[in-house]
Each structure stands twice: as structure tokens, then as C-alpha cells.
Design a protein around this nucleic acid. Structure first.
Lengths: 145, 145
DNA sequence: TATAAAACCTACTTAGTTACTGGGGATTGC
DNA sequence: GCAATCCCCAGTAACTAAGTAGGTTTTATA
């Protein structure tokens, strides 16, 4: 029941992009350094975000990535489902294909459904803007202290 | 972000035991047949439940397993944490050991904490008795139809 | 226009996990 | 004493996670 590095790095990448938005593209190398993660690996994670149109890349010197939407328009759910696959706690409720024949009168399935709703409730109602806000509030706190 | 068969089978085993409680021990073989899962594999899952004292075994003919508590006294959270390990969505918030040095001002960690709370909210407030009740209500429905 | 900086692409790797199967040994009710 | 049942351990095939490695393509700038 763990979120893998793909999903976690994707969120940190998007947040880093949002926090360092100057209009100019941000390089993977810089994000990787700030986030202390492998840049070669981050590259692969970012490729997924790029293909899905969540970020736009520009190549060559001064190249890098920028967000394509406002931070408030990205939910954690989108980012996680893109990078992790579906976020349902059991496969048999994710889609029709994985449904088992017991589904109709399976009480455990109903329990999993409630868990899924709780998970979705959080990830689909938290946006990149929410995290940015917290980040800003946090660094303000640090200055006060 | 999936619950493995260990956790799922453990819940189904416990629920099956609760539903077939006649005071007499229930055999793994029977549960496995009803639940349509491998009995050799279920054996291993049950060993964990047994070692933790969630069920009591008796050997020899007419042997099997019985619950050690009332169904209302088992939460899904207990069963899942026993069989799956901790249910936190990221390792760095599960325990002190896995904490990274960025933890103090990590906004993503705060997000994961909210997700964890949502998950715990469901799994720690659903008991075996809740599932039994649903199961009974469900089979009653089936008769009406 | 050459150069270097960046993204882009594909293949490989190592370690670990999942979901079992299989074979036997220890207990114990009848 | 026998068979049923739990108990214990070993192995395994397929998959996933989390990278590493090495190149190719595009492009801003000197």
C-alpha cells in the first residue's frame, strides 16, 4: 500500500516547477539537485508528465520545463493516477476488466470501495496550489523563528 | 498503492470464520473452498493471524481455527497492518527510522499525512462485525429479490 | 556556423516482492 | 494406530521498483 517514487517524484517535480515559476523554463538538473533525487531517473518520470501535456518542454540551451496550467488546476489525484496507475486499493474495483464474478455480493468489495472513496476524497481535492500555499506559509514561519 | 492478497485473504478468512461460528473449529480447507483461494497459500496467511493471537488453532481431526475475540473487537486496520505491514502511503511517515532529513519542512509529507489519516479513518473504524452485518443484510436482500 | 546545453529515447540491471507450489513433520480425536 | 488437521520450511516464476548507462536530437548563443 505504498506510493512509489514515480508518483512522489512527479509531485515534487510539479511543485518545484510551480515554486520556481519565473516564466523561464526550469531544468531537470536543477530540480533534481534541489530535491536531491537522481536526475536521470527524474527524466523518465517527467517524460510521462510531458507526454500527458501536464508540462511543456523546450530543448537546447536555456531549455527546460514549464507548467501548462495554473497550479490550482492540477490535483494530486491526476498526477498520481498518471504516474502510478489507478489509485484504487484493490484491482477488482478499478475497472470492469479486473472485476471478479463475486463482485455483486462481496462485502469486502464494499469496504474497499469506502476506502477508495476516502483516498479519492483527499487526492482529488488537493491541488498544487494548496501545496504551494503551505510551502509559503511554512517558510514564513521559519523566518519568524 | 494496492493491498496484496495477504491482507485481502486475511480479511476474508476472518470474516468467513465469523460467519461460520458454531463454536466448533473451522478448517482452512473449507474456508479456502468457499473463498475460492489456494489453501496452501491461505495456510501461510493464517499462520500470521495465529501467531498474533487473532485466531486460536486446534490440531488433529475436527481441528481448525476459531476467533479469539468478538467480531466487533477486530478492526480492519489491525488485520491489515499485521499482514501488510504499516498502511502509511509513504515509508517516511511510517516510523522514525524511515524519516528523511527533509521531514521538518516537507509539504508533500503533510499531504501524505492527510492521506494517511483518511485511510486510517476508514480502516480503523470498520470492524469485522460491520462486515458481518452487511453480509447478512445483503443475503436478506437476495431472498427478497 | 560551431559548440555546448538541454531534452529525448532505449536498453539494461540489481534487488526485492508477490503469489503461489510442494514436501514433509508434529499433534491429536476417534 | 490411523488419518485428519495444523505446522514449518524451501523453492520458484513472474513481476515491479528504482535506478544506471549511453547515446541521439534539437536549439540558443558566441
Amino acid at each position: 500500500m505504498k506510493v512509489s517514487t514515480k508518483g512522489r517524484y512527479a509531485i515534487r517535480f510539479m511543485l518545484d516547477l510551480a515554486m520556481h515559476d519565473t516564466g523561464l523554463p526550469v531544468r531537470i538538473r536543477d530540480v533534481a539537485a534541489r530535491q536531491e533525487i537522481s536526475d536521470k531517473y527524474l527524466e523518465q518520470v517527467v517524460a510521462t508528465l510531458n507526454k500527458a501535456g501536464y508540462v511543456r518542454s523546450s530543448r537546447g540551451p536555456q531549455g527546460g520545463y514549464v507548467l501548462t496550467r495554473r497550479p490550482a488546476d492540477y490535483t494530486m489525484g491526476e498526477i498520481l493516477r498518471l504516474t502510478e496507475g489507478d489509485m484504487a486499493p484493490v484491482a477488482c474495483m478499478a475497472d470492469e476488466v479486473n472485476q471478479c464474478k463475486r463482485a455483486d455480493n462481496c462485502v469486502t468489495l464494499r469496504f474497499w470501495k469506502r476506502l477508495d472513496d476516502a483516498i479519492s476524497g483527499v487526492i482529488d481535492h488537493t491541488t498544487l496550489a494548496d501545496l504551494m500555499e503551505e510551502e509559503l506559509a511554512m517558510s514564513a514561519d521559519n523566518y519568524v523563528i
